[in-house]
């Protein structure tokens, strides 16, 4: 079993009102089969035994789908591996002697709660602004009543795969949430079920996105590169179209 030794520089911050700073820790004999979060578990277990407070970090499913985990490792959201969340990043990506700088996802719209834990409820409010089809439970037509081409369903699914982790915001030089917002708008704009509210939805969600303090998009493509689900900026182009249609031709 291969093991490596690491130096970690981790951002420690008590809460949103306190100032934070980097703390340096060394870890020895980390098995390369570990996931990044398991490595942090080892660190936390060590810290606990030393009577120090463990590093707070968000995580839940640990299989890359819940979107709860995430940190910036050496300047890259979710670390250097492509299309993985932090929990699916494995230590074999690193070499012995490496120094890893671990920072929380930073954005004006994501206040830091503690250490690496940030508050992403701004995302929820963007969805609440219109990321749904306004139908009640019951009284829906048969699932096969409206045919949807396989290609359309797949395109919609490409966008719907978003896990809401916030890496796009964290990596965007402007802290924009365009990839996140565009994913939901694209998913619904592509499907017949999303048509009735299409124009209103784009306007409402963009308005909320701006109100939350997310930045604007300067088409830097960073979001697409770090997205653990490989969501394409083609969705941002679609959002731009949806928004234009909505605001220029909406009722």
């Amino acid at each position: 079993m291969n093991t490596i030794d690491l130096t970690l520089k981790i951002w420690r911050q008590k809460d949103n009102d306190s100032l934070g700073n980097f703390e340096t820790y060394t870890l020895r004999d980390i098995t390369t089969d570990m996931s990044f979060l398991e490595m942090l578990d080892v660190l936390n277990e060590n810290l606990t035994k030393e009577g120090k407070e463990p590093v707070a970090f968000d995580h839940d499913c640990r299989e890359g789908i819940c979107g709860m985990c995430g940190a910036v490792v050496d300047g890259v959201a979710h670390g250097p591996d492509k299309e993985v969340t932090l929990c699916q990043l494995h230590m074999r990506t690193f070499n012995t002697g490496d120094t890893l700088v671990i920072e929380p996802f930073r954005s004006r719209a994501f206040p830091i709660r503690k250490d690496l834990v940030v508050d992403r409820s701004a995302f929820d409010r963007v969805i609440q602004a219109g990321g749904y089809v306004s139908i009640n439970t019951g009284g829906t037509i048969d699932g096969n009543a409206i045919p949807i081409s396989s290609e359309t369903a797949e395109l919609s699914m490409d966008a719907a795969a978003c896990i809401g982790c916030g890496a796009c915001v964290a990596s965007c030089p402007n802290g924009a949430a365009m990839l996140f917002t565009s994913a939901k708008i694209s998913q619904l704009a592509l499907l017949p079920q999303g048509q009735p509210e299409r124009k209103k939805r784009a306007q409402a969600m963009v308005q909320q996105m701006d109100a939350e303090g997310f930045g604007h998009c300067t088409n830097e493509k960073e979001c697409e590169m770090v997205c653990p689900k490989g969501i394409s900026i083609r969705n941002i182009a679609r959002l731009n179209r949806e928004y234009m249609k909505g605001i220029l031709m909406g009722e």
Binding site: K9, W11, F22, V72, D74, G75, V76, V101, E103, R106, S107, R108, S171, P173, N174, G175, G215, H216, T218, E220, K221, E222, M225, V226
Partner: peptide, 21 residues
């Protein structure tokens, strides 16, 4: 205007500044 808006977030947000693109 856009430049000024993004200025606040653009610089030295992270200890390690790195672009993937």
């Amino acid at each position: 205007l856009l430049f000024l808006e993004s200025r606040s977030t653009r610089y030295s947000r992270y200890e390690v500044n790195k672009r993937v693109v």
